[in-house]
C-alpha cells in the first residue's frame, strides 16, 4: 500500500507516493535525493541522520516519513543561502571541525539549534547538547572550537549580513 504524501524540505514541497513503513531518513535520501543526511546506526544513537523539524533537531531514522508532513524540514542542503554558506558551516571550514565528514551535517544542524536557543552557551552546554551526535573520528576538540567560534551572538551577526 502506497500513500500520497507531501513533504516540505528546505522550503520546497515534494509530493511523493511511498509506503508508510519508510522512515524520513530513507525517503530524504532515496526519494527526494538529498544524501547530505547520513544513515549511521539507524537506531537513534549516532545522530548522523539529524534534520531540523520546525527548527528542532530530531533523528530522521526514528520518524516515519508519513509522520513528517505539514512541517518545515531542514536538511544540511538547506542551510546555504544563494550559494553562501551558513555561518556555522563556514566556522567548521575555518576551524577544520571535520575529518571524514560523515557526522558533520548532523553536528552542524544540532549546533545551529543550540546557538539559536542560547547564543552564548558554555563549553559544557555545547558538549551536553551534542550528546546525540557521535564522531567516529573522535574529532571533538575541533568540533567544539568551530562551535565556540560561532557563539556570543557571532552566528546571529554573521547571518544578518549574509
Amino acid at each position: 500500500m502506497k500513500l500520497l504524501i507531501s513533504l516540505k524540505v528546505n522550503g520546497q514541497t515534494h509530493d511523493l507516493a511511498i509506503a508508510p513503513h519508510h522512515t524520513l531518513l530513507g525517503v530524504l535520501r532515496e526519494e527526494v535525493g538529498l544524501t547530505g543526511t547520513k544513515r549511521g546506526c539507524d537506531d537513534g544513537d549516532c545522530g548522523t541522520c539529524t534534520v531540523l523539524i520546525d527548527g528542532n533537531p530530531i533523528t530522521s531514522c526514528m520518524l516515519l516519513a508519513v509522520d513528517a508532513q505539514e512541517k518545515e524540514i531542514t536538511t544540511i542542503e538547506g542551510l546555504a543561502v544563494n550559494g553562501q554558506l551558513h555561518p556555522v558551516q563556514q566556522a567548521f571550514i575555518d576551524h577544520g571541525g571535520l575529518q571524514c565528514g560523515f557526522c558533520t551535517p548532523g553536528v552542524i544542524l544540532t549546533a545551529k539549534y543550540l546557538l539559536e536557543q542560547d547564543p552564548a552557551p558554555t563549553d559544557e552546554q555545547i558538549r551536553l547538547g551534542l550528546a546525540g551526535n557521535l564522531c567516529r573520528c573522535t574529532g571533538y576538540v575541533l568540533i567544539l572550537e568551530a562551535i565556540s567560534a560561532s557563539r556570543d551572538g557571532k552566528m546571529q551577526k554573521a547571518e544578518a549580513t549574509r
Partner: peptide, 9 residues
Amino acid sequence: LGSIQIRFL
C-alpha cells in the same frame, strides 16, 4: 533521557 534529538520526538 536520550539526546536532544530523541527528547523532541
